[in-house]
Design a protein around this nucleic acid. Structure first.
Lengths: 214, 214, 214, 214
DNA sequence: CATGAATGAGAATTCATTCAT
DNA sequence: TATGAATGAATTCTCATTCAT
């Protein structure tokens, strides 16, 4: 079976190559400028070859979209071990931002880009499960906040409101950066700025919650 | 000069017509689906005519981008009369969100869309002033926070950090909505959710600042 | 209005040029080999130009199809003046054959080709009228036979049976020729052969009917 | 030689499998929509495999074409035993129609489709024999008519004229049906219609001949 | 001022065919 | 014998842009 397995592996590698290349182009040129042609040129294959690995362009995008959510979910696992819910929530935010800034193409596709939706909306009808994978991540956040509530923080706050607020905050941070609306802050300071903004959040929101508790 | 002036006026009106139509289509069909042909059809002129008023498609987009910032700046003027800096800051946030949700096409173009940048980056070289108009809005926010500081809030916080944080928060809210990442919240609840999120911010951030002061 | 009219005329001429060229290619290369590219090359315009005159390829084919039936119907008018129904029926057959052999591309599209049907079937749903134009021609045949019956011929024959039979006969003749299944008959004899076959029909079918009458 | 023979047999079987599958697809999807890939998928071999058994797509079609004529010739044998030439001729026509309607894919390819000709014309140069197989069937018809003449029917008619006429008649019937030009006759009546048309022919042509004889 | 006509460049996709293994 | 991988050449169609009038 060695041969069959290697074949399978090579096929997988090709798919990965195509996906990575698509992602690189996405990052460089923006979403609407990914074309099969460009991808094919970059990997030095003919456009027709790509169709041996993916049904069509949509499937590439859809796969990337899904992959992104898998990846994010993977990152999120790392913080589940933290016992203290408040600390965990803080780490949660940090991790989210790191994920976004280290995988801006994925993040963009997952949370900013408008394009992939035609396909994804169609899919939704078929398996109803498409956003589920994204939902898992949201549920993790909700649960974290629930734990905080149990621990006495956000007592009077509706969970969804808190979740949406915190999510908005971190999403705002990274999407302003990814979509380059931060030219007023010198490039080299941005990293610190993000860190400070996260601290700002912690001090004002999370710690506040803590104080209210006591 | 009467004739010349009228001519100028008519020219202006035509430009406005084109811009408005473009914006309408932008809203209806999404950004990447605007074509000059669509615009031309809607205003019942030939595509070639548009080139008499704008150098190319990019210039249309660039103009809309600029217009958006003018508009936002106009909205922001309304809150300058509020004396209490904290109250003013709160209104500032509210107004920003309203602007975004009532003018989603503009907001999208100004703060989310990737497209206008080719053009804007080129322009930057020429007049260096392109973001200045956006900067005015940011400066207003900064100044508002400065006033808060003078009034004793955000004492220990760097102004840019606070500004960026608050901006991120409201930007996060509206961009999740505009780019339709809120399907987990039923459509009819979203308006409330936004309001609650703003309240959440005020309670936890602004009021906290206030408490610290006392 | 002279200018407008000339423009309109020129537009019409271009449409005609495209249609004629398509038809020529159809004849030369068979239906499945009409491509917009080929048409464009032949008329020495760019492929994009064709789209200024026709919505898409289907519209070209559909138009040709319709045109063919109009043409046939026009030809059929010529024999309506013949009083004697039997003579008229004979002329009817002759005319049908002439139409087919002088306009083989049209005939092929109308009565042999399989392809245009996707489009035409769709259309059917929309206006229900698509075959009506072809039906008019069939009705003419039916009516002719009805008249013959009144005149005492085909007394015991169902009209549709007679119509279908006669139609089959002439269709058989021309479609064997158009689709080149007559290579056993030397090219130069074919014209006579067709004539003789028509006579054969008249003698055996029409005249027979006549005799039965007496 | 056992091995060699089995090999040969297996090869033959594979060719048959490919041909049958092609025919099935031809029937299902229409001629121009057969692709080697489809055939390959259906027989669960790779497209490349097909090239081990056939030089190219044309050869497959050409073979089917030839096969069709073999088949028809086979069917025609069945009526040779009928003594009475007139009866035989009538059965001849019936059999032809049955063959066509029961094997529409073959009939279409043999007598309607334009496609196989590129290949066949080339072949003709090489062996000159390509239509010979079809000719045998035509000769059978001619001979049948000759016999009728000898029996006193079609006395004054040229054999080829009679043959071509009768052939045209039955070809007309089946090709109108196969290429779906009979939508004016409800599906369920078509079978009867064909039968009636054949009767119509017999009464008017064959029996007429008979009467003339007496 | 306005436009009808035209197009080059480029998009996604399909298919028969080849060839090294 | 069989095939997985690859592709060149086509296909339809779209769009921003130009230019003579």
């Amino acid at each position: 079976m060695g041969i069959k397995e290697r074949k399978e592996l090579e096929k997988q590698e090709m798919r990965t190559l195509i996906l990575d290349t698509a992602m690189k182009l996405f990052l460089e040129k923006g979403f609407e400028n990914i074309t099969l042609r460009h991808i094919a040129e970059k990997i030095e294959y003919s456009p027709a070859t790509i169709y041996l690995y993916f049904k069509d362009k949509d499937e590439i995008i859809y796969t990337l979209h899904r992959e992104g959510f898998e990846k994010l979910y993977g990152w999120q696992q790392k913080i589940l071990t933290i016992k203290d819910p408040l600390k965990r929530l803080h780490k949660h935010a940090e991790m989210y931002v790191s994920f976004a800034l280290e995988n801006p193409e994925y993040y963009d596709l997952m949370f900013i880009e408008r394009a992939p939706f035609k396909k994804i909306k169609e899919m939704k009808c078929k398996d109803g499960m498409n956003w589920e994978i994204g939902m898992r991540s949201y549920d993790l956040l909700r649960k974290n906040i629930e734990d905080c509530k149990k621990a006495g923080v956000f007592q009077n706050t509706n969970i969804d409101v808190a979740a949406f607020s915190l999510w908005s905050f971190v999403h705002g941070i990274v999407s302003l950066i990814i979509r380059e609306r931060c030219s007023m802050f010198p490039e080299e300071q941005r990293h610190d700025l993000v860190k400070c903004a996260l601290d700002f959040m912690q001090e004002n929101i999370l710690l506040t919650g803590l104080k209210k508790r006591s």
